[in-house]
Design a binder for these strands. Structure first.
Lengths: 232, 232
DNA sequence: TTATATTTATGATTTATGTCAGTTTTTATT
DNA sequence: AATAAAAACTGACATAAATCATAAATATAA
């Protein structure tokens, strides 16, 4: 018996989040038939803090940034990035029914949207799935907390060095960024003013620790960057 | 048929974490017979970052503080507090097998220790239990992240005001603290130097926003404190 | 292309916060 | 009660970092 194409789409998806491997074929087909595929352009808002939770999203391509807003969005703080294979919205599960963090597209993104009721049903019926979700949630929040604490202990130079290293290793998967990351993004990630970010990126460039071409960063002297991150 | 006393202990425990209500009597009795009851004196280390995970702990009485250590413990950052009914160690589940956060007794504490293997077995066998654990984990980590971001946006006066309000509302459950919270604790919670904490608590006292008697804080002018927290 | 908005850059200045050194008070221990 | 140890306090000082003002460079739209 031939499987319907729509099921194969999810079955063969190479960017599936790990936990979906715990679903039975029947469960996965439920996801497959009801999921929505959406495309976001760079800068578009994917999920807005304060709205009702309606879905869990899977990043298929692109990178999304997760941030918290305060005081009518004048103040923002970037707390995480989502790349292919990662789920957006796990932090909202069984918590409030209100979205906790805004998410926007750092690059063009393709996402799959899964109805939150289906997702919670799967959790309630499949303990392997639930256990894997616990694993993901813990992994994510421990990383967020860890980044924040390390950031807090550093002075500005160390913060930027640390942020660049983390972005290279865990977000862009390369020392040669192909994603535009603005000074303001750095500021919102590291809790400093964008003026200071400008200044410090400048000194890093002058000292030939990084290169900036067309607004894209490339790490030139990684050991130096690691040293600055450690001591500063 | 009479239930054995040891089972009743857990069944009737008034400080049980919510998720244990999802366990069957048989499962709860497994916990009851294997759990260990431990007493810690104020200041003692309950759980040490970097060691192997061996247990999940339930706070029965007292308050514990959760913190992260860096550079051989010279730098510490308090990230959470645990009070009766709350579980310690959920962040370590299915993550690494290494304890992520140190925990020490802020006051004398009575804890129940549950073998991590039993706890993970229960998770794997009881989906209602697992779902409730997801709920707890999300609740905790969202609060930690929220506190941190708010703290980061404030200046020193606002940080201390915010910290005092959060401690009163969510940790000590009273505007009249009965728990000694040192200047250094404030510093490690709000990411500032203890000298600055001293100064600011002094101005709060001079301005009759708080009272400090025997080292214990009492909130006198809550609206003022809220205002400082908001604007500063 | 021009026009407009956004981002980046830079110097001068102010402010916030940490550091250091010394003193007093409180807490713990014998 | 006496002693030691830790915590809290205070002022002077240094410095890190934000703010302001303004210009240059890019990106975006008409």
């Amino acid at each position: 018996m031939e499987k319907p194409e729509i099921l194969l789409q999810c079955l063969n998806c190479s960017n599936k989040a790990e936990c979906f491997n715990r679903l039975s074929p029947k469960e996965l087909s439920e996801v497959a038939v009801s999921k929505l595929s959406i495309h976001y352009k760079k800068g578009e808002i994917i999920r807005k803090q304060g709205t009702f939770v309606s879905s869990i999203l899977l990043v298929k391509t692109g990178i999304a940034k997760v941030y918290k807003e305060f005081d009518h969005a004048e103040n923002r703080s970037i707390i995480d990035f989502k790349k292919p294979g990662q789920l957006i919205g796990l932090a909202d599960i069984f918590n409030a029914s209100i979205v906790q963090y805004s998410v926007s597209a750092l690059t063009d993104c393709e996402l799959c949207s899964i109805d939150i009721r289906l997702f919670e049903k799967l959790l309630n019926n499949n303990v392997d799935f639930a256990v894997d979700v616990i694993k993901s949630i813990n992994f994510q929040s421990n990383n967020i907390i860890d980044f924040n604490i390390k950031n807090n202990f550093k002075q500005l130079h160390g913060r930027i060095a640390h942020a660049i290293l983390v972005l290279a290793e865990f977000v862009f998967d390369s020392d040669d960024f192909d994603v535009a990351f603005t000074r303001r993004d750095f500021a919102e990630l590291t809790n400093m003013s964008s003026m200071s970010v400008v200044r410090i990126l400048k000194t890093f460039r002058d000292d030939q620790i990084i290169e900036i071409k067309n607004g894209l960063i490339r790490i030139v002297d990684k050991p130096k960057l690691e040293q600055i991150s450690r001591i500063g």
